[in-house]
Amino acid sequence: MSYLGDVIGGVKTLIKGMKVTGSYFFPNIINQKYIITRQYPEEPAIVMDRFKGEVVMWHNENNEHRCTGCQACEIACPNGSIEIIWDRVLNEETGKKVKTIDKHIYHLGMCTMCNLCIQACPTNAIMWSTNFHNSTYDRSNLTKVLNKPGSKLMAGVEE
């Protein structure tokens, strides 16, 4: 009787499987109970606060940042995503030439979000933003200048 036993046993396992899928289907069709889809633009995406979206530079309300142009992040970066163009500018108050960033260039397209630059930054000038809306039609848009135009170093960071 193993022939018929095979058939019946086989059909039983099939029904067991159908029970599992059915147990999801019927609640779903009634009130979408187990649906895991999130309809993105309407329902906002859940982004954790530590999410490494892109590197940004913090600016205060006076358009001042904390980057001294020490290039620690540029050295720490494994693949050259960060380039810093700096200059020595004469500080009028002290009369000394001070290293100041001209442009803090960040290639988001190359960045692998490894966190090394942020770990390396001695002044906490750069940090993670959770923004992930970065898709563009042109790759060149992914090269960003992190310091805002006209911004300058916050007083008291140099020490």
Binding site: Y24, F25, I35, T37
Partner: peptide, 10 residues
């Protein structure tokens, strides 16, 4: 639609 409901999708 049915497939989606089986698979927890919409």
């Amino acid at each position: 639609r049915v497939a989606a409901f089986f698979q927890l999708r919409l």
